[in-house]
């Protein structure tokens, strides 16, 4: 028997989910709650195997609930059921230890699948969530491999060129019609992008990577 608890403040939605689950012989619904406080109370009192958790709860965020229960009940499987399809929410929930993430347009087959998969100790995400996470990974890959081929803005290139020409910050600022502070912030971005610590390093990698050619 898989014991399931539903945390969602939309009563109609929670009832809908319930009606999808009741027909399954191996599922047992242990309860429903519409607030974070009620969810914590019930789950502590009568721990289920799987918690279906909404992020948008009225009193406290579902993220908070996830964090607390992850520490208190390491065996509990948490399946997020949310309207949010943004990468930030998905990665945050996964970072807090949720094992599954479904969007609220899910269907019966997927929902049952997800619950059964989680119980075996694996993770489950719906297609759209997988796509979002994959795109995010591709983005971050380009960012981490940027050392050999850094993406430098035209403005940074100008600043870099003037740095290589041994101009001072003040001279660069007056030449480009920007403030000294802005020159400094370009410099800071360049240091971070090229992974160097000072002006000498900037000049060195500018020449090594031939950043200023093809102008």
């Amino acid at each position: 028997m898989i014991r399931i608890f539903i945390a969602d403040d939309h009563v109609m939605f929670a009832e809908g989910v319930e009606s999808l689950l009741v027909g399954e012989p191996d599922f047992l619904l242990t309860g429903k709650a519409g607030t974070a406080a009620d969810t914590l109370k019930h789950v502590r009192l009568n721990p289920p195997d799987v918690l279906l958790l909404d992020i948008n709860l009225p009193d406290q965020s579902g993220m908070e609930v996830c964090k607390i229960l992850r520490e208190e009940q390491p065996d509990l499987k948490i399946l997020v059921l949310s309207m949010f399809s943004e990468e930030s929410y998905i990665t945050a929930m996964l970072g807090l230890g949720a094992q599954g993430y479904l969007l609220k347009n899910t269907g019966k087959v997927e929902l049952c699948n997800a619950i059964r998969t989680l119980v075996t100790g694996k993770t489950y995400f719906c297609q759209e969530v997988t796509d979002v996470v994959m795109r995010g990974l591709m983005h971050s890959r380009t960012a981490s491999t940027s050392k050999e081929n850094p993406k430098i803005s035209r403005r940074e290139k100008e600043v870099l060129r003037l740095i290589v020409e041994e101009k001072t910050t003040q001279e660069i600022a007056s030449e480009l019609f920007i403030s000294e502070k802005t020159v400094e912030s370009h410099r800071a971005a360049l240091l971070a992008k090229l992974g160097v610590r000072n002006t000498a390093g900037l000049v060195k990698s500018a020449l090594q990577l031939k950043l200023l050619e093809g102008e």
């Binding site: 939309h10 109609m12 939605f13 009832e15 027909g23 309207m83 347009n105 019966k108």
Partner: peptide
């Protein structure tokens, strides 16, 4: 939009789903 309209739409969607399952 997100909480009430979105929430109600999601509820409607899941109710349709439950009718289909039945």
């Amino acid at each position: 939009l997100h909480d009430s309209v979105g929430g109600m739409l999601a509820a409607t969607r899941i109710q349709v789903e439950s009718v289909l399952a039945k």
